[in-house]
């Protein structure tokens, strides 16, 4: 599976059965942090629209395999309730040389943030919970959510 959703803790061990030409592997782990926009976060809840999320995720990985000079790429995204420090998303790109693997991995995380239908509810230490708007999270100059809304 090039792109997976899981409600279980993400295992980050990389198989030793990678393409024999692999010389550089770049992995990215997105983890749940205890603070966002100056608010103390106690946990996160991720919800996916599975049928479309899997389709879009596969499309992203397939595009990367075509457009970048890499040998393999994979991504896994968590769903469900996550604690501080848990891995929310894990991405791996393998290439002959590191430069393309770095570029492909960054492309994948930006594309996931832009087009894969997954939503994030932040639970705060004061008991409030808010669905986070992250419209511009893929913008390299603006990595944090700037707008939130409460229902």
């Amino acid at each position: 599976m090039l792109f997976q959703l899981t409600n279980q803790p993400i295992e980050t061990l990389i198989s030793s059965s990678l393409h024999p030409h692999t010389g550089g592997i770049v992995t990215f782990e997105g983890r749940v942090r205890a603070i966002n926009d100056d608010r103390e976060v106690s946990s996160l809840e991720y919800e996916a629209y599975p049928e479309l999320a899997l389709h879009e995720g596969h499309t992203i990985i397939s595009e990367v395999l075509e457009q970048f000079d890499i040998l393999e790429a994979r991504a896994i995204h968590r769903t469900g309730h996550l604690a501080i420090g848990d891995i929310a998303v894990w991405i791996m790109s393998a290439a002959v040389h590191r430069k393309e693997a770095f570029a492909a991995t960054e492309y994948i995380i930006n594309a996931i943030k832009t087009s894969v239908p997954i939503w994030k509810k932040e639970h705060y230490s004061n008991g409030e919970a808010i669905w986070v708007r992250c419209d511009r999270c893929a913008d390299e100059h603006n990595h944090t959510a700037k707008e939130v809304f409460s229902l």
Binding site: Y46, Y49, K113, V116, P117, I118, K120, W131, C134, C137
Partner: peptide
């Protein structure tokens, strides 16, 4: 039909 509010994965 599924309406999709701004996504926030990653």
């Amino acid at each position: 039909i599924v309406f999709i509010p701004p996504v926030a994965g990653g």
